[in-house]
């Protein structure tokens, strides 16, 4: 570490220049997390529905396929992100042609995120009462229609709640990915704040990270309430007497 510090000009960033350093970094973080989450949702939702329906009691139970898939996901979930990122560098390079920068960070983040989100979707589907699927089947629904309308649509608030948690985890992962040169807030925090003891930069990045996470959580919670008819009602009822 001391060698790295020695290679850099040991000088604090002047306060007026902090925004110019931090704002693009925030943009990079949002880009990284945004791309990752798009991939995570696109793959994680169908994969979660698949795992759920391969399990006993699902639409097409299959013990072997379920166990195999479940193992793969568990392995993805059990590796610490830093290790996962290092371990799959050859794969990352195969896909993106590079092992540094945002594209290189998106690959391990997506893999970790998909493993995480698949479990979240599976768990959300499990919390939907089974009678919904039976109603749909008895009403003549095809398996795809059952999954879409009786399983996923009913689980949407719970899935969105999980999506919030997942997004926040991805913001955290992006900071770790920052250390392999993906840029972003995490990178700034580590190189300026940590390695150069630049407290002003460190503090700024902390404030930005806390604010971002809080914003994501708030938006997520609000969305969940909006998507749950009974919660919408309770809020209206709670507000009612005040406005009346």
């Amino acid at each position: 570490m001391s060698a790295a510090v020695g290679a850099l000009p040991a000088q604090n960033v002047p306060l007026p220049e902090i925004p110019a350093l931090v704002v693009p970094a925030l943009g990079e973080t949002l880009l990284m997390v945004g791309i990752t989450m798009a991939i995570v949702v696109l793959v994680g939702v169908p994969l979660g529905a698949l795992v759920f329906n391969l399990a006993p009691g699902g639409l097409f139970p299959h013990r072997v396929a379920h166990t195999a898939l479940s193992w793969v996901i568990s392995i993805g979930r059990s590796l610490p992100f830093l290790i996962l990122m290092a371990a799959i560098i050859p794969f990352t390079r195969l896909i993106t042609g590079t092992n540094i920068g945002i594209p290189a960070a998106v690959v391990p983040m997506s893999i970790a995120g998909i493993a995480f989100f698949t479990r979240i979707v599976e768990n959300s589907l499990r919390s939907v009462p089974g009678d919904r699927a039976r109603v749909a089947i008895a009403s003549g629904a095809s398996p795809v229609q059952v999954i879409r309308s009786a399983q996923l649509a009913e689980a949407v608030p719970s899935i969105v709640g999980g999506l919030t948690i997942n997004t926040i985890a991805m913001i955290e992962y992006s900071a770790i990915a920052g250390t392999i040169g993906a840029g972003g807030i995490g990178y700034v925090a580590v190189t300026y704040g940590y390695q150069r003891f630049d407290h002003a930069v460190m503090l700024t990045t902390i404030v930005i990270l806390v604010a971002t996470v809080a914003l994501v959580q708030l938006t997520g919670d609000r969305l969940v309430r909006r998507l749950t008819p009974s919660a919408r009602d309770r809020r209206a009822a709670a507000r009612g007497p005040v406005s009346a």
């Binding site: 009462p129 009678d131 919904r132 039976r134 109603v135 749909a136 009403s139 003549g140 629904a141 095809s142 229609q145 309308s149 009786a150 649509a153 009913e154 949407v156 608030p157 998507l227 749950t228 008819p229 009974s230």
Partner: peptide, 23 residues
């Protein structure tokens, strides 16, 4: 069904429409 099995995020009308949508 005994448990009415209504979809919690659909209105009464949307629940009745379900089999028609499937069809």
């Amino acid at each position: 069904f005994q448990s009415d099995g209504l979809f919690s995020r659909r209105t009464a009308a949307q629940n009745v429409a379900l089999p028609l949508e499937f069809l």
